[in-house]
Amino acid sequence: MGRVFSEQILPLIHARRANDQFSVARIVKAGSPLLSPTALRRSKDNKAVLQGLGKAVDTLLQLWSGEGEPTLLAILQHVAKTGLFEIPDALQAHASGAIEQAAADGSDAEEPADRQTERDIAIQAYLDTPFSQIEPMAEYLAGRAHFDTHQGVKGLEFDRVMVIMDDQEARGFLFRYDDLFGGKPAGEKTVEATRRLFYVTASRAKESLALVAYSTQTDRVRSFVLNEGWFAPEEIVSKLDEHPEAV
């Protein structure tokens, strides 16, 4: 779904800003339906086609000319209007504005889930993101980011590692750090699954390791890791005043 942003629009913006006309031509030739063999055969004026394509690229850049920056939705709708790139099926309704219009027309008393599917709501939240977030996402997907999922780092090593353990944000059901840190007895399914995951992450570091655990039971977490002998008292820092859920 994000391919149109990360693999087409992002490199196109970079190339156009660098005045790299060769790269601009390569990108649109590879991905724009405006330059497909079928479109060119049907056209009676290929020069007009190229002029229209140039205008589509130039007006795309104009989305950055005002204050702030455009959202993915604004860019998506511009691409759909100009036909610059193919729109994925999952984004077609958003590109046309149908989903957003339906949400605006819905009664405030209605529950969002009654007006839209959870999938549409998730896509809307994604499309409300500023375009500047696409480059970090592309770096992550390409494996060049400085962070990864707990499962994604298996088999890798790093000089310094920080592990973030937040059950609420992870929304996992096969593992829970709160269960591992004294929430459930050893042998429970989630405890053992989380223990294996904890070992994978903690053993990635070659020189230094920092573990950040979010919990509503900070005293229990502290007592558990001390009783298990995993850490010495001086290795545990609790910021209860500033961050009441962090250990």
Score class of each variant (00 low, 15 high):
Arg119Glu: 14
Ala202His: 04
Ser6Tyr: 14
Met162Arg: 12
Ser223Leu: 09
Ser215Cys: 04
Phe147Trp: 15
Val225Ser: 06
Ala186Ile: 06
Ala30Asn: 13
Arg196Leu: 06
Gly68Asn: 05
Arg196Glu: 15
Ala39Tyr: 08
Gly172Cys: 08
Glu69Pro: 01
Arg196Gly: 06
Phe181Gly: 02
Glu188Arg: 10
Glu169Pro: 00
Ser238Met: 13
Trp230Arg: 08
Phe173Tyr: 13
Ala213Pro: 00
Val247Pro: 01
Gln51Asp: 06
Tyr177Thr: 06
Arg41Met: 10
Ala145Ile: 02
Leu61Gln: 10
Pro88Ala: 03
Ser32Thr: 13
Ala193Lys: 05
Ala90Cys: 00
Tyr126Asp: 11
Leu60Glu: 01
Glu7Met: 11
Ala170Gly: 07
Glu139Ser: 09
Gly2Val: 06
Pro70Lys: 07
Gly143Val: 03
Leu180Pro: 14
Phe181Thr: 03
Ser23Thr: 15
Leu72Cys: 09
Gly68Tyr: 10
Ala138Arg: 12
Glu139Cys: 01
Glu242His: 10
Val28Thr: 15
Ile87Val: 15
Ala74Met: 10
Glu207Leu: 12
Val225Glu: 04
Gly152Gln: 08
Ala138Thr: 11
Gln168Asp: 15
Ile123Phe: 04
Arg16Thr: 15
Asp45Arg: 01
Ala39Met: 10
Arg176Ser: 15
Tyr199Asp: 01
His243Asp: 15
Tyr177Glu: 02
